[in-house]
């Protein structure tokens, strides 16, 4: 059982900018939660506070009921996929994948056989078997993306964090990887928090979405519920109107030939 709770969490940067305000949020076991909002809304900061990359100014973050505010990033048992992938350029794909396993401490420490077994497993899952000896720069964008995903998953994280993982890919690959990410989640059941500004990505991936604006939580519910019952004007314009516009554009595009025929 994994659960994550944000309890009245605040984040204020040194220059006084209030990135996150009184955020209270819970993520259930095996849930796929998407943090959605325009840029600067605090969604990435929220994720980075959970990951341990940013200090928490106020409130508590709990993983499985344990307060992790001051736990070092590596000790929280999370895996993270960065927007730029952040693969280690000087290591082969195999070493990139096994690095986190080799760094495990104490009772989690793994022996060599176990490490190579796990790396093989994850490489197979993500179809990276043929590329294990290559360096990151020899791979295509989609392959790099999969390595980044593999590096996060290979440690069997309690929670998988993804920070706009698809925004560096072209449209077709993005679509493909989106399905892949959802498939992996259904297969592995890892609790996942996914940050994006793309409404369609959020609607298609999420079990529940949390919509943020100016550091404040606007609505937290299943995606279709947010669409049908927007909590306020912001959700209405950011989510509902955007999707309706997309639908209208698509409809107009496909209607045209019929109108010409009439």
């Amino acid at each position: 059982m994994v659960s994550v709770e944000f309890e009245q969490v605040n984040k204020q940067y040194e220059d006084g900018f209030q990135a996150v305000q009184n955020l209270t949020l819970d993520i259930k076991d095996k849930e796929f939660l998407v943090l959605l909002g325009p840029s600067g809304c605090g969604k990435s900061t929220t994720l980075r506070m959970l990951a341990g990359l940013e200090d928490v100014t106020g409130g508590n973050i709990r993983i499985d009921g344990m307060k992790v505010n001051h736990l070092p990033a590596g000790a929280r048992g999370l895996g993270m996929v960065f927007q730029s992938y952040a693969l280690y350029p000087h290591m082969s794909i195999h070493d990139n994948l096994s690095f986190g396993l080799r760094m495990m401490k104490g009772t989690d420490k793994l022996d060599g056989n176990e490490i190579s077994k796990r790396v093989k497993e994850i490489a197979q899952l993500l179809e990276l078997d043929d590329h294990l000896d290559k360096k990151p720069k020899e791979l295509s964008g989609g392959q790099r993306q999969r390595v980044a995903l593999g590096r996060a998953l290979v440690r069997r994280p309690k929670v998988l964090l993804m920070d706009e993982p698809l925004s560096n890919l072209d449209a077709e690959l993005r679509h493909q990887m989106r399905n892949e990410i959802r498939r992996l989640h259904d297969e592995l059941g890892t609790t996942t928090i996914y940050v994006t500004h793309d409404q369609i990505e959020a609607m298609t991936l999420a079990d529940r979405i949390a919509i943020l604006d100016k550091g404040e939580l606007q609505q937290h519910c299943a995606p279709m519920e947010a669409y049908h019952n927007p909590a306020n004007d912001f959700v209405r314009s950011f989510l509902c109107k955007h999707i309706d516009d997309l639908v209208d554009t698509a409809n107009a595009l496909f209607k045209k030939p019929e109108e010409v025929n009439e």
């Binding site: 590596g74 927007q83 760094m103």
Partner: peptide, 22 residues
């Protein structure tokens, strides 16, 4: 990139290991 160091931190490195290994 800072993200490389953050990735290493999430992979379980302490500050000194981030420096020496990455």
């Amino acid at each position: 990139p800072r993200e490389l160091e953050e990735a290493a931190a999430l992979d379980g490195c302490n500050q000194f290991q981030v420096f020496t290994k990455v």
